[in-house]
């Protein structure tokens, strides 16, 4: 089972993107997935967590995620000492930052750094970074294909938002893939 934890602030779309990944895996790749927020009240601007579990088998385990394969940080001000807890030793962090040099690593964990905010401002004219981080995660992890990720956006989002968000996912995906080479 693959486990992903999403860190964002209320209003940035962290829970939406946890579902997009679940839709890509479950609807478009025939796998099983669970997507859920950190349970509780929803407050704009407050730190929020969301989770996605992906597996080839039916997912019966409903307990909290204890050992993440990937952690996606949509807002780097959320990085604190606790962020590397409950992760696998092989965990990769995907971080939204304008200063990639700052995150060569994170407490010894591998980091994929992308400037999601600038891209979101360019394409969406708003600092909503969830789909940019989605593209980065998909490129870095390979948990679902780019095609499935694009389809999940079409499946879930309002028609007016589909095009721009697919563009963001595609561009970040290609950027991260090219960095990996």
């Amino acid at each position: 089972m693959k486990e992903i934890r999403w860190h964002g602030r209320g209003g940035q779309g962290g829970f939406t993107v946890s579902r997009l990944l679940g839709i890509a895996a479950a609807i478009f790749e025939g796998k099983h997935a669970l997507a859920f927020p950190a349970f509780g009240p929803e407050r704009r601007g407050a730190p929020v967590l969301a989770f996605t579990k992906i597996s080839d088998e039916k997912i019966r385990d409903r307990s909290e995620i204890q050992s993440c394969d990937y952690v996606v940080v949509m807002d780097e001000t959320l990085i604190n000492a606790g962020i590397t807890s409950r992760v696998k030793p092989s965990c990769t962090f995907v971080v939204n930052t304008t200063d990639a040099a700052r995150y060569k690593e994170l407490d010894g964990f591998k980091v994929v750094a992308v400037d999601a905010t600038s891209l979101a401002l360019e394409v969406l004219k708003r600092p909503i970074t969830n789909t940019a981080m989605y593209g980065a995660l998909v490129a870095a992890s390979g948990f679902v294909s780019l095609e499935s990720a694009l389809k999940s956006i079409e499946h879930e989002m309002k028609p007016s938002l589909v095009g721009p968000n697919q563009e963001i996912v595609r561009r970040v995906y290609e950027l991260v893939k090219s960095q990996a080479l």
Partner: peptide, 12 residues
């Protein structure tokens, strides 16, 4: 059904 664990978890 269990609150949040089932009510707020998305699945197929």
């Amino acid at each position: 059904l269990d609150g949040f664990i089932l009510t707020h978890t998305y699945e197929i």
